[in-house]
Structure formats: C-alpha cells, structure tokens
C-alpha cells in the first residue's frame, strides 16, 4: 500500500502541476474564485469527467490486466484519448501518462508495462495516467477498489495543489478541501463499479468548453 501511496504524492513528478484541465479558464472568467466555488468545480470534475472517463476505463483496464487480455487494455487507452476532443488536455494527459510510465518503469518491471511503453513508442497506443496507475496498482497487489480510490485521490490532490497556487487559496483551505473530498471518493468508486461500459465518456459540456477555450488564453500559468 505504501508503494501505491508514493504514486499519489503530489511530489510524484508526472507533470500534473502544469495542467489545470480547464480550471484556469474558470478562474480567469471569475466562476471559480474561492474555496466554495472551487469545491463545486472539483465535485463536478470528479463525479462527471473522472467517473465516466478515467474511472470507468481504469476499472475495465484492471479487469483486462487481471484476465490477461491486453487487447482490451489498448482499446481503453485509445478510447480515453479519442473521447477527449480538447487538444491541450488530450496532449497534456498523454504527456503525463508517458512521464508516469517512465518513472514507474525505473522502479518496477512487469510485462504489460513494457508492452504499453513499446506501443506508445510505436504510436500504436497513446498513454494515459489512469492506465499506467491501474497497471501498477494491479502489479503491486492492490484490489480493484483500492486502485480506483487511490487513483481518484491522486488526481484530486494534484488539482487542489494547482488551485491553491492559481486561485490562490490558502494551504489550509486546500487541505480542508482534500479532507472533504475524501468522503466523496468511496461513493465515486461505487458509481464507477455500477456503470455499464456503454456509459463511457459522457460529456460535461461546460468543462470541455473551458478546456477548448484555454487554448486561446493569452496569459496562463498552466499548459491546459
């Protein structure tokens, strides 16, 4: 479990600190400006975007790795990439996935991870942190539920750290939001487990728009 915690540390250098996934657009337009407005953005991001895309894909990737069905893993990697129509966010996520993969490969070695690496190099796959994290959770012997909850936690912590810098919020406010959101994570995992594969990638129109609009933002501290 400690090994999985290492991946959730906001100091784990995947580049998450460079990506706001559209949050910066909301901050610039004044819709997110304090702990309360940020917490409601985070709730939507968690329960819509993360549950329907990353979370559902992670669940299916875990099962596919468990059942030794690599082709299904590659299918979910592709779906995660092609359902993301906002280029900055899509490319940023791919970079993070690639970065995370390289880091994990420097610490652990297992076949599906090496295959993923080779496929990304050969442009057969795209790379996504949810896929890398899930493969690693499985390799480390974590359960599917734990892998999901730790993955969601790692994303949420990264987003809160970014909000603390960008809005800005006090560190204390940031930690309070992390504590509050912890209570929502098991429910988010339950929802992921209850979804059909057909529910994958349901669009959050406002969030996508904010990600697309970010491409045209002149002054920025985040790459997405």
């Amino acid at each position: 479990m400690l090994s999985l915690l290492q991946l959730c540390d906001s100091n784990f250098p995947t580049g998450a600190f460079s990506h706001s996934f559209g949050l910066e657009s909301y901050i610039q337009e004044g819709q997110v400006h304090d702990p309360a407005t940020f917490a409601s953005w985070l709730g939507v991001y968690l329960n819509q975007q993360l549950v329907h895309a990353d979370g559902l894909a992670a669940r299916c990737v875990f099962d596919a790795v468990q059942g030794n069905r690599p082709d299904e893993v590659w299918k979910w990697d592709r779906l995660l990439s092609v359902q993301n129509l906002a280029r900055e966010t899509r490319e940023g996520t791919q970079k993070m996935g690639d970065r995370m993969l390289a880091l994990i490969e420097s610490m652990y070695s297992f076949p599906i991870l090496s295959q993923y690496r080779q496929r990304i190099r050969g442009k057969a796959s795209f790379g996504h942190p949810a896929v890398v994290f899930t493969m690693t959770g499985h390799h480390l012997g974590a359960s599917r539920e734990d892998t999901l909850v730790f993955y969601l936690y790692s994303v949420v912590v990264g987003l809160v750290q970014n909000a603390v810098r960008a809005i800005p919020l006090g560190q204390t406010a940031g930690q309070r939001i992390i504590r509050d959101v912890q209570e929502e994570l098991p429910a988010a995992v339950d929802r992921i487990l209850a979804l059909d594969e057909e529910d994958f990638g349901v669009l959050s129109p406002g969030i996508e728009l904010s990600q697309m609009k970010h491409e045209r933002v002149n002054i920025r501290i985040f790459m997405s």
Partner: peptide
C-alpha cells in the same frame, strides 16, 4: 478501421444539474 473520434452526449435533466457548472452552465 481505427477509432479516431468518440463523442458521447447524454443530457438527463432529472439526474444531473443540467444547467449548472460543468454542464450547460
């Protein structure tokens, strides 16, 4: 033959805050 675009719109006013933040705003 390769999936290149996947778009899934699902609007469900009873189960979502459909005009709220992140949705139709």
């Amino acid at each position: 033959g390769e999936l290149a675009v996947y778009d899934h719109i699902k609007l469900q006013p009873a189960g979502q805050p459909v005009d709220g933040l992140g949705f139709l705003e």
